[in-house]
């Protein structure tokens, strides 16, 4: 679903510093030339350590976001109000799990195991998208997450299909197709609710009010306060700046809100003829950083739930490994 469009250093990890002096200059020059020519870097290619670390961090954060992101929407599977919506929601949450799987696999091509990455998540060192640290309070949240959160994620992720690292770029092509489908499904679910009872309409508006500002913050801090972006741009990992993506999202969403019949909760939101873009109000960055730092409304619940699922499943994974070992031993014995 949702990568954080900016690089948040994991806890205890400094921002990947470029240390070209430690790298072989000839290999470095060849790498730079490939990047400059907009070529792809593949797993077997030489790459500078800082590039590798930055990618492992970004792809694993993205994978963790997919897996943690299953929980807020999973919250409504058991109570989905129709069988059709239940099936759609299960399939959507399942897609997110699938995205996690491709992304962990893409990150593994950089020499880090899934176990290592999960350990980073479970120990609280690794970050995931902060948007999932907010609660889903009504069924309308499911539709609004599809429309706005997935909508914001798509803005972030389309440029990643052209990311310089081949396995990540290819994974993102499929992820983006599915996200785009989720966004339309979410929007369609809201359109139907807005044709329903007054209570249903109020439910949609309430969900929009709660998610709108969180979605704008998903694009990351303003460009002026985003020191990692320049290096990401240089390496072809990031293609469009946070502010440009945010603007694109606002401009695309305003007409959709109008068709839906909801109000976006920002009194400063208006068309600026001179800029040919919408102006919008101030994002509460303090609240955003509090949540990134682990002090949002659901951080502890989300993470503890992932840790519990993993710990409770240990005996299942042990059984699979023990059985595989026994089968192998039997095969060797039979062959002898």
């Amino acid at each position: 679903m949702y990568t954080q469009s900016f690089n948040v250093p994991d806890k205890g990890q400094k921002t990947a510093a470029v240390t070209p002096s430690l790298e072989d200059p000839e290999l470095m020059a060849r790498f730079d030339a490939r990047i400059d020519a907009d070529g792809r870097i593949e797993p077997q290619d030489w790459m500078p350590e800082a590039y590798r670390k930055t990618l492992v961090r970004q792809i694993s954060q993205h994978a963790h976001s997919e897996i943690v992101g299953m929980l807020p929407e999973g919250n409504w599977i058991s109570r989905a109000p129709s069988l059709k919506r239940k099936a759609i929601l299960i399939a959507k949450v399942q897609d997110e799990g699938g995205h996690g799987l491709y992304l962990y696999s893409a990150a593994e091509t950089l020499g880090t195991s899934r176990d290592q990455m999960l350990d980073g998540l479970h120990s609280g060192r690794a970050k995931y998208s902060s948007i999932f640290n907010y609660p889903t309070l009504t069924w309308a949240d499911v539709g609004v997450i599809g429309w706005l959160v997935d909508g914001a994620a798509i803005m972030n992720q389309i440029p990643l299909c052209r990311c310089s690292y081949g396995p990540y770029a290819r994974a993102m092509v499929r992820v983006c197709k599915e996200e785009s489908f989720h966004q339309r499904q979410g929007y369609e679910a809201l359109l139907v609710m807005m044709k329903g009872t007054d209570e249903q309409k109020a439910m949609v508006q309430d969900a929009v009010n709660r998610w709108w500002w969180k979605c704008l913050a998903m694009f990351g801090p303003p460009d002026a306060d985003s020191p990692n972006s320049a290096q990401g741009m240089r390496w072809g990992i990031k293609r469009i700046s946070n502010d440009d993506l945010r603007q694109k999202f606002v401009d695309a969403t305003v007409p959709q809100a109008k068709v839906l019949g909801v109000t976006l909760p920002d009194p400063d939101l208006k068309w600026n003829e001179a800029r040919q873009h919408h102006d919008y109000g101030q994002i509460d960055w303090q609240e955003f950083w509090d949540t990134v730092d682990g002090n949002g409304p659901c951080n502890k619940e989300r993470l503890s739930t992932r840790v519990k699922a993993h710990n409770d499943g240990q005996w299942v994974r042990d059984a699979a490994q023990a059985y595989a070992r026994k089968q192998k031993e039997r095969a060797i014995k039979e062959a002898a």
């Binding site: 897996i67 299953m70 239940k86 299960i90 949450v93 399942q94 499943g313």
Partner: peptide, 13 residues
């Protein structure tokens, strides 16, 4: 469906 998001391993989820 109660297992969705809580499976013992991602593939089983």
């Amino acid at each position: 469906a109660e297992w969705c998001g809580h499976g013992p391993i991602l593939e089983e989820d």
